[in-house]
């Protein structure tokens, strides 16, 4: 059975960029992805990192209780390869993501924010 060793860091949307600028070290930390979870009333954001050649460690920077229409900061200043995952999330959750180009995956005729609960549960 897998046994990931999670190291959780609590952050908010206001301080996430500064926290990551201070914490992220290009030599040891590997950016995996940014993830969003729809809780029904609000969103939870996770910025997920691993460490090179360290077993089973996963760092999670978690920001909770995010309103649907919040402005999400882009992390492209911290690590330049962030745009794919951010644009993807912006499409999938209909987010106000900084610098995001919409329509990377979704066609104009597709539903907006297909991973939002209200779009698939019919509420």
């Amino acid at each position: 059975m897998i046994n990931p060793e999670l190291i959780m860091h609590e952050v908010t949307l206001e301080n996430i960029k500064q926290t990551l600028l201070d914490w992220y070290d290009v030599d040891t930390h590997h950016y995996i992805t940014v993830n969003a979870i729809d809780n029904g009333e609000n969103l939870t954001f996770d910025w997920i990192f691993s460490e090179y050649e360290v077993k089973n460690v996963i760092h999670v920077f978690r920001a909770e209780n995010i309103a649907y229409k919040s402005n999400i900061p882009s992390m492209m200043d911290v690590y330049p390869g962030a745009w794919v995952s951010e644009w993807d999330l912006a499409d999938m959750f209909n987010l106000n993501m900084e610098n995001a180009h919409r329509g990377m995956f979704l066609e104009p005729e597709a539903p907006t924010g297909p991973l939002l609960k209200e779009s698939y549960s019919g509420k």
Binding site: I2, Y52, E53
Partner: peptide, 23 residues
């Protein structure tokens, strides 16, 4: 800097493999 993965990272000398880092 771009957090590459797989054979692209390893061909550049980055010691990065999930088989090595995750059981």
């Amino acid at each position: 800097a771009y957090n590459t993965a797989g054979s692209i990272a390893r061909a550049s000398g980055l010691r990065m493999d999930a088989r090595n880092e995750f059981d």
